[in-house]
Design a protein around this nucleic acid. Structure first.
Length: 413
DNA sequence: CTTCCACAGGAAAAGCCGGGGT
DNA sequence: ACCCCGGCTTTTCCTGTGGAAG
């Protein structure tokens, strides 16, 4: 076996295709301007608005928020309040990742610790306090912060689920008692809720909704042109000169836009393509590498998809697989159902009805596992669909492998 | 043109499951 | 420990469909 060497004919710095490096955001100028305008009140030293930010993963919500916060801070630093009629505000921003915090209580406790992190005040235990006590500590901490304004970003707030107490209370900690609210010494708080769950807003308690959703900012997926800009920017850093053949970036952008529109997906695809080139010892990344990478990413997605299916979904997939091996595809649902039923009975799983298998097959079509064609043989066969596999059997086996209930089915049905 | 095949897929009822209240 | 409720899946039932056979 040869030794690995750090030198690499393809990548100069592949980190540029991963994570949030470089920490900047492109093609979102208009969106960020709109977003930032929600904080006009801060710069005017008024009570800030609460903002609700939503959109799928990988479209710049998190770094966009950080960029906006930083820019608001800079705006205050750079504006000359000296002879204006506004008092100069002072701003503190915090960004809390709520991913692993499943309750309002946990969010409140971690937020409190985050606020205290920069002071000498001691952090509190994240368990053990009565619920009301946590909120009291948190609100006192907020009000007594040395700055005039605090902006709190709660990232991935959908994880707190039904327990939206914090989302109701936090935005109101300014005005829950009006004497304090007019007191200029009391810190004014603005809350930004960030989520990638499009339905989350609707599940909120109406009271929380009305306060938190003061202003709503929607981050849509990127289109192909935007992805192209992002890819070029990163590719400049990631690759040696002239490694990418001309159409690689546009093709990658187009494929990623078609599939999802997430920057992450586009960068992963480009990385995968380049990695394949490197592994093959090629000196250039070509469109063929991109096509191959797209293919392998899609296969990977299908493996995941199959892996996550219900037992019945797996059994139907298995039945399709066996039918395909026996050259019995395309098959109509009766045939598929018969094979499915046999497989199910063999492993002692009571089969579902054909109506349900019908639905299952529809799901499998959406996932790109099977494909169907409408056929109509009139009196001698009627109108129906015929199903066949739409991906490689080996891919499906990878997905089914590991489920002992399926692998123990006798292959000689 | 009418009939009829054989399934597609909608609607509603039934069943199931997890969470919360008592 | 028990029951009830709401949300989800599955079953049951049934009507709709388009073209070839008659």
């Amino acid at each position: 076996m040869e030794r690995l060497t750090p030198g690499d004919g393809i990548f100069d710095d592949e980190d540029a295709l991963r994570d949030h490096f470089p920490n900047r955001i492109l093609e979102r100028d208009e969106k960020l301007t709109e977003y930032q305008s929600a904080f006009q009140e801060v710069v005017r030293n008024k009570r800030p608005r609460n903002v609700f930010v939503y959109g799928p993963t990988g479209v710049g919500k998190t770094i966009g928020t950080k960029a906006v916060f930083r820019n608001v801070e800079r705006s205050i630093e750079e504006y000359d309040y000296g002879d204006s009629r506004f008092c100069e505000p002072s701003l503190r921003t915090v960004h809390l990742e709520c991913k692993d915090l499943n309750t309002s209580y946990q969010v409140a406790a971690h937020l409190l610790n985050l606020l205290r992190a920069e002071t000498e005040r001691e952090r509190i235990s994240t368990t053990g306090y009565p619920e009301g006590e946590i909120y009291r500590l948190l609100f006192d901490e907020l009000r007594e912060t040395a700055t005039s304004h605090v902006l709190v970003a709660l990232d991935e707030i959908d994880t707190v689920g039904d327990d939206d107490n914090i989302l109701y209370k936090l935005p109101r900690c300014n005005n829950d008692d009006s004497a304090r609210y007019v007191d200029p010494a009391v810190t004014k708080v603005g809350v930004v809720g960030i989520t990638n769950d499009g339905t989350f807003r609707d599940t909120l308690d109406p009271r929380a909704k009305s306060t938190l959703c003061d202003r709503e900012i929607h981050f849509p997926p990127y289109d192909a042109t935007e992805l192209e800009t992002i890819l070029r920017d990163r590719a400049d850093v990631a690759f040696h000169d002239d490694v990418l053949s001309a159409d690689v970036v546009p093709l990658t952008a187009a494929l990623a836009a078609q599939r999802s529109g997430y920057a992450r997906a586009a960068l992963d695809l480009l990385y995968e393509a380049a990695d394949q080139a490197r592994t093959a010892g090629d000196r250039q990344v070509t469109e063929a590498h991109v096509e191959a990478a797209e293919e392998s990413i899609q296969q990977g997605a299908i493996v995941e998809e199959v892996h996550g299916l219900s037992v019945h979904g797996k059994l139907v997939t298995y039945a399709m697989l066996r039918l395909s091996e026996s050259d019995a595809t395309p098959a109509k649902i009766d045939t598929v159902y018969a094979w499915y039923k046999q497989a199910a009975e063999q492993v002692d799983i009571s089969p579902v009805t054909s109506r349900t298998v019908h639905n299952t097959l529809n799901d499998l079509m959406v996932s790109g596992i099977v494909d169907s064609e409408e056929v109509n043989r009139g009196r001698g066969g009627g109108r129906h669909y015929e199903y066949e596999l739409s991906c490689r059997p080996t891919t499906l086996l990878d997905g089914l492998d590991g489920d002992s209930r399926i692998t123990s089915v006798d292959t000689r049905i």
